[in-house]
Amino acid sequence: MTLSNSGTIALGGRNVHRLGFGAMRITGPGVWGPPRDPAAAVAVLRRSVELGVTFIDTADSYGPDVSENLIHEALHDGTGYGDVVIATKGGFTRQGPNIWQAVGRPEYLRQCILMSMRRLGVEQIDLWQLHRIDPLVPRDEQFGVLRSFVDEGLAKQVGLSEVSVDEVKAAQAAGVPVASVQNRYNLGDRRAEELLDYCTEQGIAFIPWAPVDAGALARPGGPLESVARAHPGTTTGQLALAWLLQRSPVMVPIPGTSSVAHLEENLAAADVKLTEDEYQTLAKAV
């Protein structure tokens, strides 16, 4: 595979390949605790970089702490991460498997980034993202903290997660240099279409989570399977990722896995090129 075929985008002060890796699934069940096989998780991270991944997305709440610690163990060379941009997120507390609670108090968000810096072994986070806007805290206070992280040099860039166009505009109006947005988006769930279009217009990286989940479109006899017939040896998941990459030049899919074989399968999507007719067939199939 040639990951450069996924295209590049400027993030975290470097140009990165647009097909990255999401490090949520290298934790335990329910994104809670350590993985069943920590050595396998380390192997997945190292293999991703060997294959050309230059953008890895994680969060302090994955584990919590587990994902960031594994990234440090697997990839930190004593001075940093070389050409690999590590993006992380803060603003969630965890009380058990699959339990997430947004906390956007300024002092907590500052603790989040400082602790992520410690776990990742860096003096500056490449890209720090607010995991959720806390509805119980004035959003301008949360935006002010994001702006201060850049002003103080704690983060090269900052971004937002699960937001609307109006919220991105509000953050920009408050002086936040929004570099990325992370919302759920895939072939089967395009509720963030308006936001994606705004990010494309603004040159903001759009990082879709759950990028491979095509839902009913991947059913036997469905549109993905139909297109797959013209691409022997290509999976419907690879086609779903290829469609995302062609959807917008700011799209940065981050498929995650705890398996090296699945990782290699996902990243091979960089070599898949849909014809315009195939792209439109899938675009209209929602």
Rank of each mutant, 00 (worst) to 15 (best):
E265R: 05
V181T: 09
N183D: 14
L70T: 00
V168M: 12
Q238T: 06
A87I: 04
E123Q: 15
E264D: 11
P34L: 01
N15W: 02
I254C: 03
G52M: 06
D140C: 00
Y198W: 09
T275D: 06
S226L: 11
Y81V: 04
L51E: 05
L70F: 08
Y185T: 02
Y279E: 07
P38M: 10
K169L: 15
T200E: 15
E73W: 01
V286I: 15
I99D: 13
G153Q: 08
V150P: 05
E73Y: 00
A269G: 07
P249W: 09
F92K: 03
P97Q: 12
L120K: 05
V176E: 07
L136E: 14
E141I: 06
T234N: 02
R25L: 12
S164T: 15
G33S: 06
M24T: 01
V44W: 04
Y185E: 01
E276S: 14
A74C: 08
M24F: 05
R110A: 11
M251C: 10
R219I: 00
V168P: 06
Y108W: 14
W209I: 00
P34W: 13
T236I: 15
P138K: 10
G78L: 01
D57Y: 01
A39E: 14
G256S: 11
M24Y: 07
A59D: 07
A192T: 07
S6F: 11
